[in-house]
Amino acid sequence: MLEIKDLHAAVDGKEILKGVNLTVNPGEVHAIMGPNGSGKSTLSYVLAGRDGYEVTGGRIIYEGEDLTDLDPEERAAKGIFLAFQYPVEIPGVPNSTFLNEAVNAVRRYRGEDELDKIQFVKMLRAKTKELNMSDEMLKRAVNVGFSGGEKKRNEVLQMAVLEPKLAILDETDSGLDIDALKIVSEGVNALRSPERSTLVITHYQRLLDYIVPDKVHVLAQGRIQKTGGKELALELEEKGYADFVGEEAA
């Protein structure tokens, strides 16, 4: 599914990722943990192709294809989804309009027929029902006036609608109280499938109580420093990241 080989990336000329190696197989859930400033969010933006996040070395192979030269929308159409740490507000654009645009843009890219209004609404209703969400959220402008929890649930809804092959959750737990965290996690878990891989980027172990990973990686100083099973997360919870933060960051 995803193979990251010796990935180097820079922002504003400053190298943040310094040789990341990572392989994610179909259906797996990998957690990437690490201290602040270790390059977690940078990794997610580089994977999604955000402008200004420049790959300076190495390769990202996704389903056998090098992603480096693809635009964000092309990557999205190929099935990469990034749940934002801070979902963005788009004033005046109703959520349903936004989702409709997105779904049809992706379908167009893939050479599939666009959904007409009726097909789309039907599909959307089914998704909100599946996720136990109210339709009221669909009428509101994208993320405008949403609470922290609503914003994250909206990300999960978008993910459900777009049905990605690779979902990257960037600090999805940040800003959530325990109830909201549960609801969002349930949503993510509902979308787990043997074809879908998930990369969970987080600071804290607690999210992993709900979204249980197959593997846990420690990202620090721009590299994967350690890889283990889900028990690694508990270990980190206890000891912190001190072992991985060398003199460079101190």
Binding site: A76, F84, V93, Y109, Q158, L162
Partner: peptide, 21 residues
């Protein structure tokens, strides 16, 4: 970036934001 990450090409993304405005 947010809109493009959801698959909406850049010019369509601009049009969407402006129409919202």
């Amino acid at each position: 970036f947010y809109l493009r990450q959801r698959g909406i090409p850049e010019e369509a993304a601009v049009a969407l934001v402006v129409n919202g405005f």
